[in-house]
Nucleic acid binder design. Structure first.
Lengths: 338, 338
DNA sequence: AAATGTTTCGCAATCGTTTGCGGTTACGTT
DNA sequence: AACGTAACCGCAAACGATTGCGAAACATTT
């Protein structure tokens, strides 16, 4: 059968009207038992499946939410998706996933795709290139609620589910300090990204609260496996090299660790390392990597829940910022407290 | 504006008919220049976006393909998705992603969701629990082409994009043999899974071709990080323990590696290890992990391409099996040839 | 001046489903 | 015999966009 079975097919076969079939299928009291039985058995036999497209049009309800993320190929983002998927599935929603590939232009196109497809809400983590949020704000103005997660525009009145980056960074840095590290480097990311800004701020605050002077030469923008290598080499050639590194994410931390090992510098004895994100591969490095667990799955769950809530009842007044708890996962790349 | 702008809104505002607006928007010659301009400027001003749902219904064409995978949270699967996404995007298709979470029941529901949403084709990698494929075959009978990737039903006439598991396993095993290993263990997965069967077959063939006897006690079903630990411990307590391990995937390989290290057994000197899948974390273990690169992204690309082709021109006759090239990525967990 | 052509646009049907309203039976009641 | 009333069911409109066909309005030709 090339074209799917419709209600009309059933109606024609049974010599009744489409409306009767429709009502019979949903057990409407107006329909006699015999008719219902006939319809139901034929529908089952023909494997009738209601056309969700037609329903969407009729009800102006697509039961679909959109997701825009930079790249699926990151443990963190894919675990967020997993959380989103589970919540959406439970609530009878479908998920449309779009990747921006960290490109602003593509993100704009993604937004249009979501809007054309009449998604009822969107979950967005913006690309690194995105500094103008008008495409997203327009979407929201047009009645599509948005919940930002992880990477959210600063200082805008939007719903967001994020971690308390500053606090998490503060805790990570503090742990390094408490285990005896004095010269703590920070491999950071661009300050425009919010998380870059916040994590640096937490790092600085921790230093300050413990009476350790802030050194500009110990803070480097390096947010990938490759960049971390160069940055680490440079850091270690400083007159006063670091004895600990707080990296803005795990890939960066691993890049640093690998480089240190290649330089025969013992981790954590000579240089301790702590990462951010707790991708599951923090388990498999040697030494295993201490990290800040961002709870991606949970973030997905909470973001999706908030979005569904916004779909039910549009925001009244100001939006909400929800924090996901982080916690330090202490493994072998940092020293122990004594 | 709560409800999106429609063609009728524009028509009403301009005191013309909806048909004229429609034609004006697509530059139909029947429409005068002035009308076109008026329509276009108003459409732009109101940020009119065509309703993809209505178009889908009208054209019986949703421009959407469905993807069913066990879990997004695997580097391999998310890289496949990435490949699919890129091809789909290029061709103007949307992607609907569903996770089976390795459950047969949920996979069935996923299929229904895809069918209800009238996807034009599906890309499927079946769950571990799936032994009955009728839900998928029904879908295909109803005119929705399916391309299976990675995990495809055996001995069924379906389209599939897979790697040559047997050959890849053969190569991996052969490399271990050529670097001097004599007692090669295989951490395998269930034989029902096809890839389990094929990889074991390749492993056996390699042994055979090199005159090494097959030992049942060296083949264990263990296909996760945790299971690999126990299995490896048992293997090493054998009277004649292995001097190499070929693992069915990277997580398993890393589990084995970690366990060996905990037992103070040198890798690769005492026991060499080779994995399968080349998740990017094979780079970050110490020693780095030799592995068979499955080229997930490319698999996604090829599977999507094949699917789009099937959507254009339905299969005439028998289906196609397409192999993605694999290659050995030799790193530090195996010895070098001399 | 009549006939033909050209330009520009609207009507209505269609995709599949739902639903208010009205219509047709059959049955019972007076 | 005439009427009321359930019990069942169909008509048609609606969701938004497209498109064949017909129809005005105006211009051109003979």
């Amino acid at each position: 059968m090339s074209s799917p079975i419709t209600i009309k097919d059933i109606a024609k076969a049974l010599n009744i009207s489409a409306s009767t079939v429709s009502r019979a299928l949903k057990d409407h009291p107006d329909i006699s038992r015999e008719t219902k039985e006939a319809v139901n058995t034929l529908a089952a036999k023909l494997r009738y499946k209601p056309n969700a497209v037609a329903l969407s049009l009729k009800n102006s309800k697509t039961n679909t939410i959109g997701v825009i993320i930079p790249e699926v190929v990151h443990y963190f983002f894919s675990s967020v998706i997993s959380g989103i998927e589970d919540v959406a599935y439970e609530a009878g929603y479908n998920v449309m996933v779009c990747q921006s590939n960290e490109k602003y232009a593509r993100e704009v196109i993604n937004v249009q795709a979501l809007e054309s497809n009449r998604v009822e809400g969107a979950l967005v983590s913006v690309s690194k290139e995105t500094h103008d949020f008008s495409h997203l704000l327009n979407l929201e103005e047009n009645g599509v609620p948005i919940v930002f997660f992880d990477r959210a525009p600063e200082e805008l009145d939007v719903d967001r589910v994020i971690i308390d980056d500053r606090k998490a960074a503060y805790n990570a840095t503090t742990h390094l300090i408490e285990t005896g590290c004095k010269r703590i480097a920070h491999l950071s990311t661009h300050q425009t990204l919010g998380i870059g800004f916040e994590r640096l701020a937490g790092y600085r605050k921790a230093l300050e609260d413990h009476g350790i002077p802030y050194r500009e030469d110990l803070v480097v923008v390096a947010d990938s496996f490759e960049l971390a290598g160069d940055a680490t080499r440079n850091l270690m050639h400083l007159p006063s090299p670091p004895d600990a590194i707080f990296a803005v994410n795990d890939m960066t931390a691993v890049g640093a660790m690998k480089t240190l090992q290649r330089m025969s510098i013992a981790v954590p004895q000579k240089v301790a390392i702590i990462g951010f994100s707790a991708g599951f591969f923090s388990d498999i490095t040697t030494p295993t990597l201490s990290s800040v667990d961002q709870h991606g799955y949970e973030m997905g769950v909470e973001a999706a829940k908030l979005l569904l809530q916004r779909i039910e009842i549009p925001v009244e007044g100001k939006h909400k910022t929800q924090f996901i708890d982080t916690h330090l996962v202490l493994r072998e790349s940092t020293k122990r407290k004594n």
